[in-house]
């Protein structure tokens, strides 16, 4: 088995709220001096290759993380983590089940054309 890659799910306020009381709080990692909160998962090589194959624009970045996956994929990954209350390999087993995967891919296909902009004030 090759070197495991990693994937990170960023936690905004809403996601931090969702994991309260799930036991997942203890694995939240601070990034950049606590400016960002993330949950990191190890991804075995075979799973990483599968993700890269399913989502052709995904890539391994300079840090060894799988990035540029569709937003829908990361969203679903978070849902599975919360559902299973785990960051183990079983998360990917669930995430890559055909029914879930096809739902993610369907949503991802729409992302090429439109992503909803955040609701912030423009000050430029």
């Amino acid at each position: 088995m090759g070197m495991p890659y990693r994937i990170a799910v960023i936690l905004d306020k809403a996601r931090l709220e969702r994991i309260k009381g799930t036991g997942l709080e203890g694995i939240v990692k601070d990034l950049y001096g606590g400016c960002l909160k993330v949950i990191e998962l190890n991804v075995p090589d075979d799973i990483a290759q599968r993700i890269l194959k399913e989502f052709p624009r995904a890539r391994i970045d300079a840090r060894g993380f799988i990035e540029e996956t569709p937003v829908a994929f990361k969203r679903e990954l978070f849902e599975v983590i919360v559902q299973l209350r785990s960051i183990g390999p079983e998360v990917f087993g669930e995430l890559l089940k055909p029914e879930r995967l096809s739902r993610v891919k369907e949503a991802a296909a729409k992302e090429d054309e439109y992503l909803p902009p955040p609701n912030i004030a423009y000050c430029g």
Binding site: I10, D61, R63, E67, V71, K74
Partner: peptide
């Protein structure tokens, strides 16, 4: 990582 930052933006997180 540029990829990480682009992912952050795509998710609508400032």
């Amino acid at each position: 990582s540029g990829s990480f930052i682009r992912g952050l933006i795509a998710e609508g997180i400032e």
